[in-house]
Amino acid sequence: MESLIDSITAFLSGLFGLAQGGFDGVNQVMGLLIAVIAALLMPAWNRLWATALGAAFVHILIGVVRPVLDGAPLVLPPLLTLSFWMTVLALFLGYAIVIAVFFLIKSLVTGGGHGRKAHAH
């Protein structure tokens, strides 16, 4: 039983470290702009995971395209490596946290975000 608890604790600790690394990656100007735009476009709380995944891929896409705009050759990310997908997962977790905070602020300010639609009677 203790080995199961130790395994769960190690898994959660690794997941927390990954989320913290992703949060550090998002907590820059580009990441915060992506998160604000994603939160403004997100229609309801149940779209948080899809929005965070989209934001992570936009982050990766900008990282690929920005050097090309500066004159460098196009270099694709190493899609078949574990480190690339761990980076995507870390960014996903980081964006999920930041977008949730921004969407909460948006919901409090606008009074919406609960997903209910008004019906005309």
Score class of each variant (00 low, 15 high):
79 L>G: 00
104 L>E: 06
32 L>C: 08
47 R>T: 09
61 L>I: 11
88 V>H: 07
104 L>F: 11
59 H>P: 07
121 H>Y: 12
56 A>H: 02
63 G>L: 08
44 A>F: 03
81 T>Y: 01
79 L>R: 00
81 T>K: 04
60 I>P: 00
40 L>I: 09
25 G>Y: 05
72 A>R: 14
102 F>D: 03
38 A>G: 15
22 G>V: 03
44 A>T: 05
42 M>R: 04
38 A>E: 13
5 I>S: 12
104 L>W: 10
105 I>L: 08
105 I>M: 05
33 L>C: 15
26 V>S: 01
115 G>K: 01
8 I>H: 13
48 L>R: 05
26 V>F: 04
55 A>G: 07
84 F>T: 01
98 V>Y: 01
102 F>Q: 06
104 L>V: 04
86 M>I: 14
43 P>A: 04
81 T>M: 03
20 Q>H: 09
55 A>Y: 00
27 N>R: 12
41 L>C: 12
18 L>G: 10
27 N>F: 05
3 S>F: 13
69 L>F: 08
40 L>W: 11
110 T>M: 00
92 F>P: 00
57 F>Y: 10
10 A>I: 06
69 L>T: 02
66 R>N: 13
85 W>M: 01
11 F>C: 11
93 L>K: 07
84 F>K: 03
8 I>Q: 11
101 V>I: 12
56 A>K: 00
31 G>Q: 05
2 E>R: 15
62 I>P: 14
10 A>F: 09
48 L>V: 04
119 H>A: 01
108 L>M: 09
121 H>D: 15
33 L>S: 14
58 V>R: 12
86 M>Q: 10
88 V>Q: 06
117 K>A: 07
97 I>D: 05
80 L>H: 00
113 G>M: 03
39 A>Q: 07
2 E>C: 12
1 M>L: 13
70 D>T: 15
52 A>I: 05
61 L>Y: 11
21 G>K: 10
33 L>Q: 14
34 I>D: 10
2 E>I: 14
36 V>L: 12
37 I>H: 04
56 A>M: 02
90 A>T: 08
116 R>D: 07
82 L>S: 08
13 S>Y: 13
74 L>F: 12
90 A>C: 04
68 V>P: 07
4 L>M: 15
46 N>A: 02
11 F>S: 14
62 I>E: 10
76 L>P: 05
37 I>T: 11
55 A>K: 03
43 P>E: 08
85 W>D: 00
17 G>P: 07
56 A>Q: 05
31 G>L: 09
99 I>E: 04
43 P>F: 02
77 P>Q: 05
63 G>V: 11
93 L>G: 02
6 D>V: 14
13 S>T: 14
94 G>F: 05
113 G>C: 00
36 V>G: 09
19 A>N: 03
63 G>N: 06
48 L>H: 02
42 M>E: 04
102 F>T: 07
114 H>R: 06
27 N>W: 15
46 N>Y: 08
19 A>C: 06
53 L>I: 14
37 I>Y: 09
25 G>E: 04
11 F>H: 13
110 T>L: 01
28 Q>A: 09
80 L>V: 00
54 G>N: 14
119 H>R: 02
12 L>A: 13
63 G>R: 08
